[in-house]
Simulated scan of single mutants.
Amino acid sequence: MYVAVKGGEKAIENAHAWLAEERRGSTDVTELSIAQIREQLSLAVNRVMAEGSLFDPDLAALAIKQARGDLIEAIFLVRAYRTTLPRFGYSNPVETGQMACDRRISATFKDAPGGQVLGSTFDYTHRLLDFKLAAEGEVPLAPESQPRSEPIPHIADFLQDEGIIQDEPTSDATPGDLTREPMEFPAGRPLRLQSLTRGDEGFVLGMAYSTQRGYARNHAFVGELRIGKVAVEMDIPELGFAIEIGEVELTECETVNQFKGSKTEPPQFTRGYGLVFGQSERKSIAMALVDRALRWGELGEENLGAPAQDEEFVLSHADNIQATGFLEHIKLPHYVDFQAELELVRKLRLETDGRTTPQEAAE
């Protein structure tokens, strides 16, 4: 039972004012602009867009500023704003094979068709603090390079041509929309992927790591990781054809997993898949590992009882906004509940001591 607190309006107003002051910080320091956050904290912006389910770098940067850098709070702000937007319809599936790749690597083939494009990455940096950044000097510009505009084939296509990787089932059925309908179990793969791409990066990473440590049969190779921009198209009924309405930056990961076969499937490689807004490599790889772990049923594998194989466990706990709401509600007044618990514990202690009333205890 919750108890409404009355008469605290002034205290709440003061708390809001104090929050605004803390958010601003020292006025001796130049205020951080939305453009600075968008351009220089781009990976944080990408995470907020991905888990907030809204591709808008400026709004994500604004949310980060408003939330004082608390990314989960920023994601909450973006999702809340998203619910106020009109919905015009659904875009067509994006063609990631047509992606203008800024980065594209494969851990399965050294000489991958289309080439390896390292792009901007922390992979080859030393994990040492760079104190030159504290000097706030000009950073040397990298040599000019252009995204690969020509279509780059997916690595899995070559394995599929050889017949040694599973075919991805296709369907003309319209997938469910997790942003409009609550999750129901069992959930199909489209809903699972929606849930994972919106899921908390840390949680999904932890689940993925558990599969690598043996809590699921999931030995994976990164078949391909690509980052770049893709066109977004939408069918216009009045025109009778689709038009391009914009472009989004995406990170796509497809894993190649060992599979010895089952009663229903022959020995072959299988796949895990991750697709996330912006440059979100860790999240997309983790998503692909968890996606593969959750596919045990459709592949006829044995359920080893691993956490990452439990659809209800994974999907019900991946959403950081739901988790935050349930966790933080215990800050609300629970005075009546606690008084009832307090009286119960006192009574039990009396009974344990062989006394039945507070008076007896006092004597």
Rank of each mutant, 00 (worst) to 15 (best):
P307L: 00
M1S: 15
E233A: 04
E168Y: 00
D70G: 04
D235K: 08
E233G: 02
P175S: 05
L128T: 15
T108Q: 12
F185Y: 09
P267N: 06
E254M: 10
K229R: 14
K6D: 15
E298D: 13
T270K: 07
I12S: 13
E298Q: 10
A17H: 08
P57N: 04
A288G: 07
Y124V: 10
I64L: 05
A216H: 02
R295H: 09
R127A: 12
A323H: 08
Y273C: 07
K110L: 11
E247N: 13
P267W: 02
K65I: 05
V3H: 13
L250T: 06
E363G: 12
G163S: 06
Q146D: 14
Q98S: 14
V336Y: 08
E181Q: 13
D111P: 09
A35G: 11
T84L: 03
E249V: 03
S145D: 13
P358F: 04
E281W: 01
F269M: 08
L225N: 08
N218K: 03
T30A: 14
A11N: 09
T357R: 01
L118P: 15
S316M: 04
E363V: 06
G228Q: 03
D337S: 15
Q36M: 05
G137D: 12
G8R: 12
I105W: 01
L350W: 06
F55M: 02
R271L: 10
Q40A: 09
V29Y: 05
G240N: 06
Y81N: 12
R295F: 01
E184Q: 14
A156E: 15
T251G: 06
E351D: 13
S145M: 07
L250Y: 01
A216N: 07
T251I: 03
Q160K: 12
L128K: 15
D161P: 07
N14P: 05
M183W: 00
L54H: 11
P143F: 02
H334T: 15
E21S: 08
L344I: 06
L159S: 11
D102S: 11
V29K: 12
P267T: 03
T270L: 03
R346F: 00
E351R: 09
I243H: 10
D56K: 00
G119Y: 00
R24P: 04
G261Y: 02
E360M: 00
V336I: 12
R282H: 12
F338I: 11
I75A: 04
V29E: 14
D200I: 02
D353V: 07
T125P: 10
H154F: 06
I155D: 13
G119A: 06
F326E: 15
Q322G: 14
A231T: 10
Q359E: 15
P86A: 02
F158S: 11
T251P: 07
R38Q: 13
M1E: 15
D167I: 06
E162F: 05
E31H: 07
K331V: 08
F326M: 13
L129R: 14
F203E: 12
R192I: 10
P267Q: 06
I34K: 08
R213Y: 05
